[in-house]
Amino acid sequence: MATVRIPTPLRVLTGGEDQVQASGDTVKDVIEALEKNHPGMRERLLDDKGVRRFVNIYVGDEDIRFLDGLATPLKSTDEISIVPAIAGG
């Protein structure tokens, strides 16, 4: 299972958890697994064109835009980070 680090704005969907485990062979699979356990996650991350333009998803330190996008393959030891645009201070 991959580890998914959940940013503050999305923790409302994970009961406050800052990281969760999710299984899947690709990033898309993991997002679908997240949606199953944490409904609403898919909509917050994806639109009909793919990853929302104000969200970035990393596998390790690599932005999936520069890998294979949502089809980026995963290993069970991979860590996925979600970096949304935030404004505030």
Partner: peptide, 26 residues
């Protein structure tokens, strides 16, 4: 990094509030 202004269901507007030391660090 972020192509354009968020529209619709933005993941960032949900829970306002900031911890003082976090902005101090940043």
């Amino acid at each position: 990094l972020f192509e354009d202004l968020p529209t619709g269901a933005s993941p960032n507007c949900a829970e306002a509030g900031v911890l003082g030391p976090v902005v101090g660090f940043a």
